[in-house]
Amino acid sequence: MNRRTGLRVGVAAVVAVLGVGFLGYQWATADEFADAHAQRSFCEAASPLDLSSGHELTLHEKEHILEDARAFAPDGVRGDFDTLLDWYEHFHPEDEEDAREASFAVGEFIERSCEDINIGGIRAKD
């Protein structure tokens, strides 16, 4: 292996480690529930959003479920909940992309935190 190839491999490895470390840091921060009770309470509040029953909910009902779940969510994900809840209250076309991203982040967080909940359209579980 020549020196230039070795340098490229080294740089690629550093970038990969930093990228994985950053993603791990984001989830570690978001996943820090105050305790097991807070996580159980969060999952109980979010459980009506499960694919098996969530399709029957009105937007108003979903908004209240998200408000209840947000109360137990760790600080690291509350911003996504706030963005999504704001979208439910004030439908502004210019905020649609942010709301869509927040919706995915909230759904993924719920699925990662609550093993019995399947939001649908989210592939958070391994």
Rank of each mutant, 00 (worst) to 15 (best):
E32I: 03
D126N: 06
H92Q: 09
S103V: 00
F33R: 07
A13N: 04
R100W: 03
T5K: 12
D98I: 01
G76I: 00
A71V: 11
L23E: 06
G120R: 08
H64N: 10
E67M: 11
L66D: 03
D31W: 09
L18K: 01
N118P: 00
R40A: 15
A102R: 01
V77M: 11
R112P: 02
D126V: 03
E97Q: 06
E89W: 08
E44A: 15
G79T: 06
E101N: 04
H92T: 07
E61Q: 15
T58K: 11
V9Q: 07
T83E: 03
F104H: 10
W87N: 00
V77R: 01
L85N: 00
R8I: 14
N2Q: 12
F109R: 00
I122A: 02
G120Y: 07
G19E: 00
C43V: 06
F104N: 01
E89Q: 09
E61F: 05
D116E: 13
H55I: 09
L66S: 01
L18H: 05
A99Y: 03
E63D: 14
G21W: 02
D126Q: 09
H64Q: 11
A12K: 08
E89L: 09
H60R: 06
D80I: 01
R4A: 15
H64D: 11
L7E: 13
T29L: 11
D95M: 05
D50K: 07
D31A: 12
G19H: 06
A46K: 01
D31S: 15
A124D: 03
I117E: 02
L18Y: 06
L84G: 04
E32H: 11
P48D: 12
G79A: 10
E67H: 13
T83G: 03
G54W: 06
L7R: 11
E61H: 10
A71M: 13
D75T: 14
A45I: 04
I110K: 01
S41E: 13
S113G: 03
D86V: 03
R3F: 15
G121L: 10
R100H: 10
D126E: 14
A73R: 01
E56N: 07
I119D: 02
E96G: 01
F42R: 07
R78M: 03
S47C: 07
A38I: 04
V11T: 14
S47G: 07
E111F: 01
A36D: 13
Q39N: 13
K62H: 10
D68G: 08
I122R: 02
V14M: 12
G76D: 07
D86N: 11
S47R: 13
S113K: 04
A13C: 12
E115V: 03
D86H: 12
R123A: 09
A105P: 00
H37S: 12
A13D: 06
D50I: 08
E56G: 10
E96Y: 08
F72I: 00
L85I: 04
P74W: 11
L66I: 10
L23K: 09
S41Y: 08
P93W: 13
K125W: 02
E96R: 02
H60A: 15
